[in-house]
């Protein structure tokens, strides 16, 4: 268990983000997530300051660390220079490394985010591209988006884009050299292992939940389970 505290205290986000919390609660007052969810960034700081490994491990297995929207309004407001949003970013990373993230409904969603965002980075060179925002996964985008999606090259290029073509310009095809370099960065810095850890732990959880999991999104029962279902009794 000491591994957990070592991992947290060695990270620059811990050193930079938790100086001396006096529990004033200003971060919770300004936090949009605290208004929407049962989430309290002040309480996260408390748990971390306790250095209670059991309590921290428990926190990493709960929904709470996944509620933050990373707007970082807490950074602006904290009178002591703490950054709960930065600590959350660290705790999420540690929760995945330790395999705790699949213990909570909100943590399990990281699998869907890895499939619909993370993989795009190394496959296409974009976090988000028109071709990724599929209307059946994004009904909130509305009919104008459906029209753009259907006619993407015509519409983008009219605006000066260079849709999925070689060269410079908006929505261009990212060069093979850049993609090769991005993949190598993920290998060298641990990003690839991180993706594999998300997959490995998610496959275990899918098996426990008796949900089918495949590499594709379209016929992936576990993906749709973590992407769109919500337990209404969740706190």
């Amino acid at each position: 268990m000491a591994e957990l505290l070592d991992m947290i205290s060695a990270d620059i986000r811990y050193i930079d983000g938790l100086k001396a919390c006096m529990n004033c609660g200003v971060c919770t007052a300004i936090c949009p997530a605290a208004e929407f969810y049962n989430y309290d960034p002040r309480d996260v700081c408390n748990t971390l300051m306790s250095k209670d490994e059991v309590a921290i491990a428990e926190l990493l297995k709960t929904d709470k660390i996944w509620h933050c929207g990373q707007c970082l309004s807490c950074k602006t407001r904290c009178p002591r220079g703490n950054v709960p949003g930065l600590l959350i970013s660290l705790l999420r990373e540690v929760s995945i490394r330790m395999g705790y993230f699949t213990e909570s409904e909100e943590g399990r969603r990281q699998y869907a985010i890895k499939k619909t965002l993370g993989e795009h980075i190394v496959d296409s060179g974009y976090c988000v591209h028109v071709m990724h925002v599929k209307p059946h996964l994004h009904p909130e985008q509305g009919p104008v988006w459906e029209w753009y999606f259907k006619n993407s090259e015509e519409v983008a290029d009219r605006q000066g884009g260079n849709y999925n073509k070689e060269g410079s310009g908006a929505l261009r095809k990212i060069s093979e050299e850049s993609l090769k370099d991005l993949r190598k960065i993920f290998e060298v810095t641990g990003g690839k292992d991180f993706f594999e850890q998300i997959d490995r732990q998610s496959k275990k959880k899918a098996s426990e939940l008796k949900k089918n999991i495949t590499d594709n999104v379209d016929d992936n029962e576990y993906f749709y389970h973590v992407y769109r279902e919500k337990n209404e009794t969740q706190e």
Partner: peptide, 29 residues
């Protein structure tokens, strides 16, 4: 307007699927 550009990976980092060191190195590129 450099044709070699790519994502900064920021949305992946703030969404919790890309580790800090990886995002920093993507920014470094």
């Amino acid at each position: 307007d450099d044709m070699n550009l790519h994502t900064c990976s920021g949305i992946g980092y703030y969404s919790g699927v890309v580790p800090l060191d990886t995002t920093m190195t993507v920014v470094a590129r």
